[in-house]
Simulated assay, not measured.
Amino acid sequence: MTQHDSVAQRGSVEAGAEQVVVLGAGPAGLGIARELKHRHGVDPLIVDRSDAPAASWRARYDGFRLNTCGFWSHLPGQRIPLSFGRWPTRDQMVEYFDDYVRRQGLRLRLGVRAERIDRDGAGWSITTDDADVRASAVVVALGNHNTPGLPPWPGMDGFTGQLLHAADYRSAEPFGGQEVLVVGSGNSAVDIALQLSSAVAAKVWMSVRTPPQLVPRSTAGLPIDTLGPLLATLPVWLLDGAAAAMRRVWFGELAGVGLPPPRQGIYTALRALAKVPTIADELVPRVKDSRIEIVSAVESFETNRVVLADGTALAPQVVIGATGYRRGLDALVGHLGVLTDDGHPVTNGPPAAAPGLWFAGYEEPLIGPLRAFRRQAPDVAAEVVSHLAASSAASQTLSR
Rank of each mutant, 00 (worst) to 15 (best):
T2D: 14
D5G: 04
A8Y: 14
Q9S: 07
G11L: 07
G11V: 09
V13A: 13
A15D: 15
L23Q: 05
L30I: 07
L30N: 02
E35W: 01
R39T: 14
H40I: 08
G41N: 11
D43R: 15
L45M: 07
I46V: 15
R58V: 06
A59K: 02
Y61N: 01
D62N: 13
W72F: 15
H74C: 12
G77W: 03
L82K: 15
G85C: 09
R90F: 00
E95R: 11
R107A: 08
L108W: 06
L110K: 01
L110E: 09
A114T: 11
E115M: 14
R116T: 05
R116A: 14
A122L: 14
G123M: 02
S125W: 02
I126M: 10
D129L: 11
D130N: 06
D130Q: 10
A141P: 02
N144M: 01
T147D: 06
P151E: 01
W153A: 01
P154C: 10
G155H: 03
M156N: 00
D157K: 10
T160C: 11
G161K: 08
L164Y: 03
A172W: 00
P174A: 07
G177W: 05
S185M: 01
G186Q: 01
S188Q: 00
A189R: 04
D191E: 12
I192M: 00
I192T: 01
L194P: 09
L196C: 03
A201F: 05
T210Y: 03
P211M: 12
T219Q: 14
A220E: 05
L222Q: 14
D225F: 05
D225R: 02
T226C: 10
G228T: 05
L230F: 12
P235F: 10
D240W: 03
G241R: 04
A245D: 06
W250A: 03
F251K: 05
G252R: 02
G256E: 08
P262E: 05
A274F: 08
K275H: 12
E282L: 04
D289L: 04
S290L: 07
R291I: 03
I292E: 06
I292A: 07
A297D: 12
E299K: 00
R305T: 08
V306E: 01
T312Q: 08
Q317Y: 01
Q317A: 12
T323Q: 00
R327S: 14
A331P: 12
A331I: 04
V338R: 07
L339G: 01
T340Q: 13
T340C: 11
D342Y: 07
P345E: 11
N348E: 13
P350R: 02
P351R: 06
P351G: 01
L357N: 02
F359R: 12
G361H: 04
Y362W: 02
I367Q: 13
R371V: 07
A372G: 09
A372T: 03
A382R: 13
A389E: 15
Q396I: 15
T397I: 15
S399Q: 14
R400I: 15
